[in-house]
Design a binder for these strands. Structure first.
Lengths: 215, 215
DNA sequence: AAAAAATGTTAGACTATTCTAACATTAATA
DNA sequence: TATTAATGTTAGAATAGTCTAACATTTTTT
């Protein structure tokens, strides 16, 4: 696969994430490329069985295409973590470099990166890192109330949609993907002292913990 | 500059190393590309003032072209050292990966690599690493006898060409570029306990030390 | 439902990099 | 020196990826 094709696949995968259907226009906007160009590439990727495409219909990744995209995503996320944790670069600095390194062809290199990082399952944004077969780890969300102290989790959902609850989450700046580290758990009332996004410390009551789904 | 142009420049620089004049045929052979293709690229690089070229004449890098080539070489050599020393890859494994990483556009990345390696002046083959301005370090070779203990040097030449001396060097597997680390220096006879290529330990007499030029 | 707007497609062109086939020049040899 | 061999160049075509201009289809609005 060429570098350009890889970038299209990545874009396709990104667009397929948020439910909405994938259009030529959206790809063009994301990659800052004109629609006719996207149209040609879409035909090309379709011939290679990486996407499902029919004129005027919306576009979908095939299993094969999705796997390829996830393998690139794996390289991207491992690289970002490596640049940050091993090389000490700032989180805001790593993306552009990872965009380039993700296209390297070397299993040896990325396996070593993976090894040096201790085979991480999530990047620092809480995004899962696909495995070397392009599989995403099974995301079995757990209520925070069943989690262990000393560990870090990512908020993946809520079990309660009351406005008062959601307003509270907003007030502590907690969103899907936010990091929650359990500092201690109170034996008596099952409340938890937590650190949010590596910054804010606060305490969650048992009721709050029961309504937060984490990974 | 495109990736292809960078590869041509690197080849040009390599060919300019061993004195011989640079021909279209030699570039073609080195890059495994047909002569007419090289011919087009040579015209292109000439327009960009990276090489000096006239029909049927031999080709030369300009100052500008040479500097570009050295900057790529710098990235290549820093990368090889990084892959080996920081990531623990084998010396034979690093070249292909470095061939890819050397084309990354990120001063931030390479500066950090440089920093993590302690601003090395030579790669493990004893090849000098150009600085960030594309300058090669002044190579003022010193007799080993004037060097300090605890430091690492690279063999860059000999001051004696007697067969017996050269045979001795061969017997301890010492070649141009080999690494010599001075462990201790005997006050009494100026002999040196040394470690060669990070492996073999031996002792050099003062006479040997006087005849070895190092960097 | 008809008109207008949005989106998608085709056609044709351009650049970069590569090739093969044919031709030109320089170098080597008889 | 005259041929032959080696090397270099030009011409013309192919592919990947991009563009603009023009045309087609679908969606939205009136």
């Amino acid at each position: 696969m060429t570098l350009t094709e890889e970038n299209y696949l990545k874009a396709l995968h990104r667009l397929s994430q948020n439910g909405e259907s994938i259009s030529v226009k959206r790809i063009a906007a994301l990659l800052d490329i004109k629609m006719p160009t996207v149209n040609s590439m879409v035909k090309n990727l379709s011939e290679k069985k990486l996407i499902k495409y029919e004129k005027y219909k919306s576009i979908e990744l095939t299993e094969k295409g999705r796997k390829q995209a996830l393998l690139i995503l794996r390289k991207h996320r491992l690289t970002e973590l490596f640049l940050k944790d091993v090389m000490g670069l700032g989180w805001e600095e790593v993306h552009d470099i990872a965009e380039q390194i993700e296209h390297l062809q070397s299993d040896l290199f990325f396996n070593r990166v993976d090894e040096m990082l201790g085979y991480p399952k999530f990047d620092p944004h809480g995004e899962p890192i696909p495995d070397s077969q392009g599989r995403l780890p099974q995301l079995k969300a757990t209520p925070l109330s069943l989690c262990q102290s000393g560990k870090k989790y990512q908020l993946s959902g809520v079990l309660n949609n009351d406005a008062s609850f959601l307003t509270y989450l907003n007030s502590v700046d907690l969103q899907l993907g936010s990091q929650i580290e359990i500092i201690t758990i109170q034996e008596f009332d099952k409340s938890m002292a937590v650190k949010l996004n590596g910054k804010t410390k606060t305490v969650f009551s048992a009721l709050i913990c029961q309504n937060l789904l984490v990974l």
